[in-house]
Write a protein that binds this DNA or RNA. Structure first.
Length: 846
RNA sequence: GCGGAAGUGGUGGAACGGCAGACACGCUGGCCUUAGGAGCCAGUGCCCGCAAGGGCGUGAGGGUUCGAAUCCCUCCUUCCGCACCA
């Protein structure tokens, strides 16, 4: 029945480099991916993946994130939703400025040239980006709204300026937000240089206002690790603030309040000394003249120490007694006041009550300096004894001992009772402290959003003056004069700095710091909806319809950076009545990293970088997309395999062949089909089961198994190729399903095959990407006959073919009749038979 | 130190508490080819065996269960985040 070579149609080879640009051009031409944001006939689905920095080099990691997110978007489009999937560029930032300092090229020129290159690279992926919505943050039309938000925040006490010891990167010559300083080594998140502390007056956004709200993920589908990192970063601690008072002595009158924060007010009777941070404001006042020299030496030493030395936990504790005493408000006891650098000025009140019996750090300090240790907590049923080990864990059955009228109370109750007693005396209250800090947004760099502030030089009563809204944007100069030694070019550019005070009209100087580029990424998803709107940052009707973002994807390195800032903006803008939601992203997914072949992070210096452009020219974008999805679970990290991509390339070649040339199977690879109808039915069943599984896997982002299952289906097609099965309706249906299932993940080949099939059937062309996602036939997915695994004592011994859905009574005779089973049961006694319907039978023998 | 994730063939990885190793890569042998970074066939966890078959196997050790890669406990290793936060 096979046709001979002369009737065989000419089938060209799968040539992705021909197909892919052709379809990309066509899609672009017909506006296939232009989303009508006002279409209300379909449910909206908003997909965003973190936009890239325009380094001018799209790397394989971008492909992994963006191509897979594209599959998400396309899948939802096929489900009948109105999907919006935009792309933009995080265009402000240091690399452009550093390039400018080195080469003299204007950062805008460098940046926009890179964007041009990256747009081209991005287009080769074949993603359904709606380029009409593109956002470029370094354009005045975008950054003026950064300035506008800054002014709104200022008006509403969400932005403020203060002097503070801040983290300074000496290489980039810029301050960093707390969360932009990484690890124990305390290095700059961008360049890896160790930061130092500097006292500077800087602008902050009041992110801590929402500290508690960040802990609430109600309604959000976010990965647990991210939620934990954010929760730890906020670092909420419940406890009490307790006000100690200085005792009068010959050198000071006493009566000064010394509030401390503690999570264990129940240990108040165990406080045997107090410790202030060296920077504590009362240190100078309380120092006994006899201690002045020792104190000065210690303060000097502390300042000299690097942050790292100071924060090192295994360093021996150091400190100096002030020579003054404090009064414990619960029992009037006088205890000595020390300073030590293990107490941090920035946390709590910068002072602690020291309870060495129940805190390891206090214990270490007390031991070092011979200070008393007094146990006030003990497991129920024991009495206070000599304390040898530090810190008893908070357990349910521990009780207060040696604690006056509170003795005998369970610890939690004691904590409440002591707090209440203090509150009645006005000496304390329950209190919550956070480790979280406000976001420092000032940056001493020229290539960023100018902070819209003028410092009046005429009238001190004007002082720090916001630029009026009507005068926005404060534009960056058209040309910078960068100095080779670096530094902020805005600072010495008089055309920029020289201005007039908006309040009094006198001479003024502009703020030369710019905003952290993370401000840009804190609201760009709203801007995508109206990227060129000039009378507001976004359109409320559209943000209401489309936001929050349904699906957001990106790397987990932004757990406490971008993602926290974005949540802050949603909450702040909601409070200001600008948006309806309080959370930006409903569902978040963090993909893992593609590592180099050596298993290390890809980097130019290691020489283990994979160039996607080169891979595309060899294998085509679809193969690159597919391999990135196939090689690992999306969320996992895995090394690149230079040979692995050939597997998916072969797969696409086979799909090409079975689709376009079904009747010319290789005689060696095809199977002997004795019952074509049964075989066709089997193929159809496999197709529908594949569809069911692939649909489920889409919902769970399991792209690696989607591709494995499509490979299995195509392998089955290869086996039946050239047989009678290839002439069946089932074959045709299977090919149709296969092409549709391929569409979200390999959009070009799917489109090409789809269009050729339409042409062959004489149908009018319509893109595969506007087809619906098929529904599987439940009756086909149901199983009617099975090979039931049979275990004896938990070990697999046989597979017994039988009809599905039999009862245990029906199954047992079938199983017992099997020779292999009989052999296993020989001379043994059957204790019980476990039957898991449809799964297996386990015969337990003795 | 605290918190998290993860340990499965030569490799990447599959497996609602129920047939471990799907699907690939690589490798071995063979076919085809002027050629191949092409295609096809067969094999490929380890051990014994010609085979049939059997034994052992998911970082280590315990436990729960008829049954554990999967659940629980104790370790070990790797990676990530935080780190004197009172």
């Amino acid at each position: 029945m096979t046709s001979d070579a002369s009737t065989r149609p000419h089938i060209d080879r799968y040539e992705p480099t021909e197909i892919e640009p052709r379809w990309q051009a066509r899609w672009n031409e017909i506006g296939l991916y232009r989303t009508d944001l006002n279409d209300t006939t379909k449910p909206t689905y908003y997909v965003v993946t973190m936009y890239p920095y325009p380094s001018g080099d799209l790397h394989i990691g971008h492909w992994s994130i963006m191509a897979t997110t594209d599959a998400v978007a396309r899948y939802h489009r096929m489900l009948g939703k109105n999907v919006f999937f935009p792309m933009g560029f995080d265009a402000f930032g240091l690399p452009a400025e550093n390039a400018a300092i080195n080469s003299g090229v204007h950062p805008a020129k460098w940046t926009f040239a890179n964007i041009e290159v990256m747009r081209r690279q991005l287009r080769t992926m074949g993603n359904m980006f709606d380029w009409d919505a593109e956002v470029v943050t370094a354009t005045p039309e975008f950054y003026r709204w950064n300035q506008w938000f800054f002014l709104k925040f200022l008006e509403n006490d969400l932005a403020y300026r203060k002097m503070q010891a801040v983290d300074w990167c000496p290489k980039d010559q810029v301050v960093l937000a707390r969360e932009q300083v990484l690890g124990v080594e305390r290095v700059c998140w961008r360049c890896g240089t160790q930061v130092i502390k500097r006292d500077l007056e800087q602008w902050f956004f009041r992110t801590t206002k929402y500290a508690d709200e960040y802990l609430d993920y109600t309604g959000l589908d976010w990965p647990e690790p991210i939620r934990l990192m954010q929760t730890n970063w906020v670092g909420r601690s419940e406890g009490a603030e307790i006000i100690f008072e200085t005792a009068p002595d010959a050198f000071q009158p006493g009566g000064a309040e010394l509030p401390v924060f503690t999570t264990r007010p129940d240990t108040l009777f165990g406080a045997t000394f107090m410790v202030l941070a060296p920077e504590h404001p009362l240190v100078a006042k309380l120092t006994h003249p006899g201690q002045q020299a020792a104190l000065d030496a210690y303060l000097h030493e502390t300042r000299r120490k690097s942050e790292i030395d100071r924060l090192s936990t295994d360093r021996e504790k150091t400190g100096v007694a002030l020579g003054a005493e404090a009064i414990n408000p619960i029992n009037g006891e006088r205890i000595p006041i020390w300073i030590a650098d293990y107490v941090l000025s920035g946390y709590g009140t910068g002072a602690i009550m020291s309870v060495p019996a129940h805190d390891e750090r206090d214990f270490a300090f007390a031991t070092r300096f011979g200070l008393p240790i007094r146990q006030v907590i003990a497991p129920a049923g024991t009495t206070a004894g000599s304390m040898e080990s530090a810190h008893i864990a908070h357990t349910a059955d521990e009780v207060l001992v040696d604690s006056g009228r509170f003795t005998g109370m369970p610890a939690p109750e004691g904590a409440r009772a002591i707090t209440k007693a203090l509150e009645e005396k006005g000496r304390g209250k329950s209190s919550i402290t956070y480790r979280y800090r406000d976001w420092l947004v000032s940056r001493q760099r020229a290539w960023g959003t100018p902070i819209p502030i003028v410092y009046c030089q005429a009238d001190p009563s004007c002082g720090v003056v916001p630029v009026p809204e009507a005068e926005l944007p404060v534009l960056l100069p058209e040309d910078f004069e960068f100095r080779p030694q670096g530094g902020n070019a805005l600072e010495f550019d008089e055309r920029f700095t020289k201005t007039t005070c908006p309040r009094c009209g006198g001479p003024g100087r502009r703020e030369t710091d710019t905003l952290d580029t993370f401000v840009d990424s804190s609201w760009y998803w709203w801007r995508y909806l109206t990227p060129h709107k000039s009378d507001g940052p976004f359109d409320r009707a559209l943000t209401d319809r489309w936001c929050p973002v349904d699906q957001y994807t990106g790397g987990s390195e932004h757990a406490v950076l971008h993602l926290m800032y974005a949540r802050f903006f949603a909450k702040a803008l909601n409070d200001l009545g600008m948006v309806s939601e309080r959370e930006p992203f409903l569902r978040l997914f963090n993909q893992g990293q593609i590592l180099g072949e050596d298993g290390e992070r890809m980097s130019k210096s290691r020489g283990n970088v994979q160039d996607p452009d080169e891979l595309v020219s060899r294998f085509g974008a679809d193969s690159v997309r597919l391999f990135l999805m196939f090689m690992k679970p999306w969320e996992a990290d895995a090394p690149w395999s230079p040979t692995g991509i050939q597997g998916v390339n072969r797969f696409l070649n086979r799909v090409w062949a079975v689709t376009l040339d079904p009747h010319h199977g290789d005689p060696r690879s095809k199977v002997e089909v004795t019952d074509p109808e049964a075989a066709a039915q089997e193929l159809r069943t496999l197709a529908h089961r594949t569809l069911r599984d692939v649909t489920e896997d889409h919902e769970g982002f399991r792209y690696n198994t989607i591709i494995a299952k499509l490979m299995e289906l195509s392998n089955a097609l290869v086996r039946y190729r050239g047989t009678a099965v290839a002439r069946s309706a089932a074959w045709d249906e299977t090919i149709d399903l296969l092409v549709r299932m391929l569409a979200p993940i390999a959009p070009h080949i799917a489109e090409e095959l789809w269009s050729r099939r339409l042409a062959a059937s004489g149908a009018e062309w319509s893109s595969v990407h506007v087809q619906s996602w098929p529904a599987f036939d439940p009756s086909l997915v149901a199983v009617d006959s099975i090979e039931l695994p049979v275990q004896v004592n938990g070990k697999l011994r046989d597979l017994v073919p039988m009809a599905a859905g039999l009862t245990q009574a029906e199954i047992e005779p079938l199983v017992m009749a099997r020779e292999k089973i009989r052999a296993q049961l020989e001379g043994k006694q059957v204790v019980r038979v476990v039957h898991v319907p449809g799964r297996l039978v386990n015969i337990v023998v003795r």
